[in-house]
Amino acid sequence: MLEQQLLNALTLGSVYALFALGFTLVFGVLAVINLSHGAVFMVGSYAALAMVSHLNAPLWVAMLGAMVVSGTIGLLVDVLVLKPLRARNAPHLIPMIATIGVGIMLTSAAQGLFGAEVLRFPEDVMPAGEFMVGDVHVRALEIAIVAIAFLLMAVLFTILKRTQLGRALRAIAESPKAAYLLGINVEGLFHITSFVAAALGGIAGVLIGLNFNAITPFMGQPMLHKGIAVIILGGMGDIRGALIGGLFLGFAEVISKAYLSSQMGDAVAFGLLFLILLVRPSGLFGRKLERKA
């Protein structure tokens, strides 16, 4: 049973990490807690579903399509909402409130377009295949989720550490003003970041929609709660932290469900978050991040 639970934890943790990636990226670069990320994640799911069922697109095309759709929404949010707020030097809570509004709009638009019912990917596009390793049931999809989460994380990490773009982004994360003075196209990079973060959210939506096979307009909300917990645990704006925090939360939840009581899952997640913050005021793996927008 333990091995199976560890695999369950790894999948769940990767799912959390994948969701938190884009979330933490936006916070790290734009210093905005983007509460529409849950809705963007949901949009990704629906976009892929629409492409698969109406256009008969193969799954990988649908995934790319979902990334483009979600990314475009992220970009639009940045250009239409966040950029004007930056220009007006809005107090730092204001962009967050704006993203709540965006989230409400996306959710109700999805309900209008697709209805409130739970939708699924058709059976035949699901990557089938499951096998046994000892006592453990493994599904190909689970492997794919874990692999994609780690892969995307690695790519993002390499870009941030090794490329010119990454250096520029890190400079912005330290101080947008200084970066601007250094001749970095700050606005342009904000747009790119918003696009990439939302695209990551979108693909997370597709993978989670595939794995748990339930797409609803409201699927982003519980994920958003967990995402917040993850990026706090991992340190806000920290890419590596999103992975570590996601896995940590996944393991904590599964293990507490398995060995304490399943009522405890959420209580453990948030109780732990609460306690960790008391002991380590800037998260488990975070460094002190003191930047005001």
């Binding site: 049973m1 199976q4 639970q5 369950n8 934890a9 999948t11 769940l12 799912v15 989670i208 794995n211 748990f212 096979n213 339930a214 409201f218 699927m219 909300q221 519980p222 939840e253 599964v254 469900k257 398995a258 009581s261 399943s262 009522q263 899952g265 959420d266």
Partner: peptide
């Protein structure tokens, strides 16, 4: 075993049930 609304992953509970 229990779960909460919005949960989509029931594998931890089901592994225990199994």
């Amino acid at each position: 075993e229990t779960y909460v609304k919005g949960d989509v992953d029931f594998k931890a509970q089901l592994t225990k049930i199994k």
